[in-house]
Design a protein around this nucleic acid. Structure first.
Lengths: 200, 200
DNA sequence: CAAATTTAATAAACACTGTTCATAAAATAA
DNA sequence: TTATTTTATGAACAGTGTTTATTAAATTTG
């Protein structure tokens, strides 16, 4: 049936129209400050229409989260290069921090925001892939690193970079009393030092 | 003037009544889910009354933040013991993580929540003290640690523990697919390993 | 093609939120 | 006792996410 094909295509287009507007506004103003009414206004539809395509506001977040994780994975695959495993791991860490500093609002809704987590057993699209990228980057380094196993290794590496990015995004690093530039330099220095420490 | 003394006393009592209710509800339901109307209902006053004692909802948060930082400082002073500087540093790290796991909602509004940061040049009561405790605990260890200076040292130590706590509080660690108990064990293992790595 | 039916879109309402302001009540001063 | 200041509140404003009954459009059927 060509007619139901078109209908489905239109449905997908509408979902895309909604999610594009939503993502743009989430990045620009943040999730909380973006209202369903604002999104509706932007795409020139009624607020109620959005609920025909998405169950609730959280579902918009899930969708944007998926896109964001895909972007992070993209950054990993494009920017992480190097001949040795260790070089690749270092690249991964720097890419992660870079991503956080470059896209604070995306990072926020991926790793900091409350609520966006679905049920535990649910699939978390693109996030698992990004995490697996981490695992597969750490794995070949394990013999050269001081971690006792890959679980603590992955968690520790993630924790360190996430700590830096999240303290920065939520404006806590400024306790140190530095300007933006100094802060960034200090963060880079911390990453460099950490990368030294984990090596055997 | 005895009469204006009493008035001031009553004003303080009222502020305390409000902030106690607020804190209790922030801890129980979180900041966002606690409404001015709920707080007002709890202390059996009209919502408008609260605005006679606090400028807005954020000011309630600032106040609770102050109390929370005082509690963290308290935990530091009570639980951090040890004869050697390194032992004290290890105690500090474990106390910090413990605090975060024990009081997730307090930790949240201290280190994760958006907006609670006042102007940069403002005083941040009790937070600075807690931070200075960190500095003064790290300082005597510096010669035994692999950090190049105390700034990166303080930031790195804080970052690592904050990373662990905040990933846990915002339900991101569960990507590892572990239960609460396993997670806590892994977190402790990560802290232990990190404490080994930073030593010369 | 016209009528019946399904699909899509919306206006209006509900129950909330933080916050303000004019009004009323209580406490103090004159 | 009256006048004045302080304190408390009800009602309203502008906003939020979400639901529902109603209308308009598109599709299928006779």
């Amino acid at each position: 049936m060509g007619i139901s094909d078109r209908k489905e295509r239109e449905k997908l287009e509408m979902r895309k129209r909604i999610i594009s507007a939503a993502m743009e506004m989430f990045i620009h103003d943040g999730f909380e400050k973006t209202s369903i009414r604002n999104i509706a206004e932007k795409i020139e539809y009624s607020p109620a229409t959005i609920y025909l395509y998405y169950k609730d506001k959280d579902e918009l977040l899930y969708e944007v989260q998926g896109v964001a994780f895909a972007q992070l994975l993209d950054a990993f695959m494009n920017d992480v290069e190097g001949t040795t495993p260790i070089e690749r791991l270092e690249g991964l860490m720097r890419t992660y921090v870079n991503f956080g500093f470059k896209h604070p609002d995306l990072y926020d809704l991926m790793f900091i925001m409350r609520s966006p987590m679905r049920a535990v057993d649910d699939e978390w699209p693109n996030c698992d892939e990004a995490f697996r990228f981490l695992i597969s980057t750490v794995e070949p380094c394990m013999e050269l690193l001081r971690f006792s196993n890959i679980s603590t290794a992955a968690l520790s590496l993630w924790t360190f970079t996430h700590g830096l990015v999240s303290l920065h995004i939520r404006d806590r690093i400024m306790i140190l009393g530095m300007d933006e530039e100094q802060t960034r330099a200090l963060v880079n220095a911390a990453v460099d030092e950490y990368l030294q420490m984990i090596k055997k």
